[in-house]
């Protein structure tokens, strides 16, 4: 499609050349109207997003009673604590493992859904997206009940096969596994839907051409599907990395950071220190440690979104 660059005023300019004053006021009014239309958005973002983001940096430099400037003392204090390094480690394990498995599972399931005749796809898609629709706080309660120490339905089922009861949330390693499992359950449908949309946008002719050239399914996947989906895979993965890294609901409800702080991630630990422990400056410092990773992911997303915008 040929895109004619929009030239505001061009249409109106020809007949209105004689009364230039009227045109000028209209143009002035147009930018004024546009400004008024975006004003609530600008105020909202400025007051409730940008200002608090900088305020967090300011808070992080205060002492616990928030009366004295202590510079970087909060950060120095954190770097010396073992729990902090446990949180860093767990945040990275949690985010990376969960995102990798969500992406893999989403990719595989999207292929299966795509394989099924078009009539049945809607039904499967509908069922597979349910985890994403239920509010995570509610579905995590169901998982908590499935993982219950004494009445776990999973352990009951395992017991039928003679496998021992698993301490789903009681043992550090199993608790880490459980929070990641619930996060994969919740997030994989998002990947599935995005990849399914991307798969449908790959033209059939490319696969036909590849078949004629004698490509097997692996070569089709590697040389046709993946290159065509590269951009959407990148955006989805980076986006999910941000959301997973900043996750709160699942860990908070499932383990509340336990056992012995082994499943705390930045958000839950910041909540525990800042809100429950009323040490707002230290809590703000903890949450600020998320910023570097979020910023890197955001820069890459922005680059990909722009690339995508330029392609189309």
């Amino acid at each position: 499609m040929v895109d004619i660059p929009y030239q505001p005023g061009r249409v109106a300019a020809a007949p209105a050349r004689r009364r230039r004053g009227g045109l000028a006021t209209m143009m002035k009014r147009k930018s004024m109207v546009a400004f008024l239309m975006t004003l609530p958005l600008i105020v909202l973002i400025g007051v409730l997003v940008v200002y608090p983001a900088f305020y967090a940096v300011h808070l992080a430099t205060l002492n616990k009673s928030m009366q004295r400037f202590v510079g970087l003392a909060n950060f120095q204090f954190l770097l010396k604590r073992d729990t902090f390094w446990l949180v860093v480690q767990q945040s990275c394990i949690f985010a990376i493992t969960a995102v990798v498995f969500k992406a893999l599972l989403g990719f595989i399931v999207a292929h299966f859904v795509h394989n099924v005749p078009a009539k049945g796809q809607r039904k499967w898609r509908g069922m597979l997206l349910v985890p994403w629709v239920i509010p995570p706080a509610m579905s995590t309660l169901a998982w908590l009940w499935l993982f219950d120490p004494s009445y776990s339905a999973f352990n009951y089922t395992l017991g039928l096969f003679g496998a021992g009861p698993i301490p789903w949330t009681g043992d550090a390693a199993w608790a880490r596994f459980s929070v990641i499992l619930v996060n994969i359950w919740y997030g994989a449908p998002f990947f599935m839907i995005m990849y399914l949309a991307a798969l449908k946008s790959v033209p059939d002719q490319l696969y036909e051409a590849a078949s004629i050239d004698g490509a097997n399914w692996w070569q089709k996947l590697w040389y046709v599907t993946l290159p065509m989906m590269r951009n959407i895979i990148a955006i989805t993965t980076l986006f999910s990395l941000i959301v997973t890294f900043a996750n709160f609901d699942i860990v908070r409800i499932l383990t509340a950071g336990g056992p012995l702080d082994h499943t705390h991630i930045f958000a839950t630990w910041a909540f525990k220190i800042g809100i429950e422990g009323s040490d707002i400056p230290l809590g703000a410092s903890v949450s600020l440690f998320m910023v570097p990773i979020l910023a890197v992911a955001a820069i890459f997303i922005l680059r990909d979104v722009h690339k995508r915008g330029n392609e189309s």
């Binding site: 305020y55 941000i242 709160f248 998320m290 979020l294």
Partner: peptide
């Protein structure tokens, strides 16, 4: 710039803002 800014704002998670917002 504002359109890009809107998108960037969308990427800022709630877990980064809840402590300063509470204090505010």
């Amino acid at each position: 710039t504002l359109a890009t800014g809107v998108f960037l704002t969308y990427l800022i998670p709630d877990t980064l803002l809840f402590i300063p917002l509470f204090k505010m």
